[in-house]
Design a protein around this nucleic acid. Sequence first.
DNA 1: GTGCCACTTCAAGTATGCTTGAAGTCAACC
DNA 2: GGTTGACTTCAAGCATACTTGAAGTGGCAC
Lengths: 145, 145
Amino acid sequence: MADLLTIGEVAARAGLRTSALRYYEEEGLVRPASRESGRRRYDPSVLHRLAVIGLFQDVGFSIREIRRLLKRGGTAWRPHAARKLRELDDRIARTGEARELLLTVLACDCDRLEGCDRVRGGHRRRPLPGGGPARPSPRTRRRPA
Amino acid sequence: MADLLTIGEVAARAGLRTSALRYYEEEGLVRPASRESGRRRYDPSVLHRLAVIGLFQDVGFSIREIRRLLKRGGTAWRPHAARKLRELDDRIARTGEARELLLTVLACDCDRLEGCDRVRGGHRRRPLPGGGPARPSPRTRRRPA
DNA sequence: GTGCCACTTCAAGTATGCTTGAAGTCAACC
DNA sequence: GGTTGACTTCAAGCATACTTGAAGTGGCAC
């Protein structure tokens, strides 16, 4: 059965621009689609992959990180994934803290956010000298149109 | 008492570069520091503000959004903060999903991530036509050095 | 056969969040 | 007085994740 999708259909269903799909292909996030007279034809399963990509992207992984996660089996894939898992735990904790902070200031009406005592301790970034990237460094996702 | 900090000291304690601090001042995230013969002198309280900024930044808010949140009292500040709160709830949920997904693939050793059934449903991006920004669009944070 | 539309490639542009470089200033130490 | 080191401003550069524009192609309707 040839229930393949055009790039326009995939884009519409995934909530992306066609340019994003071409970019993902170029970056190796999705396999190059088969062609019919030059035009891309996608297997519907690409939609699921795009959902996974979108999920990881939303939670702060860069395209290169996602590519590494999705290309299983590379050397040290497992430690990489495990590291990412710990990052997610960190991220969940920080997001909870931010949520608490926002709740507090929404509730207490105090004028200075700084006095709220909510953030003290535990929020320092790692020192500059050495030690690699200080943070996971989430990416910028462009909103469609 | 003049226990004010130089920009270098603030940077070291906050885990930032001095260039970031100047940038934050320029962008209105922190008030312009007082000057001593041209050089910035910071009140130590700026460290707490920087921690708050870092926290919100880490959980996906842009500098402009953070500025709005920290400049309380502007028109519609409260609805803005409330909206951000809902965004955080979304983000926490999605991060949890990503975590589950990573856990699954780490555990099950299956070769295709697509078959894991973990992400189906609920992960579509909003349709393109109208409706404003499809996503909160977290920012890129440069890692120091 | 002539529109038209969705597609193609490729190069260049955009927004965010900074960093880097050039050129100069200030205070302190020798 | 000279050098050093941390600072100053300003302009330009960079990475990420795409978008946009130009110029052309393929197939279908009329």
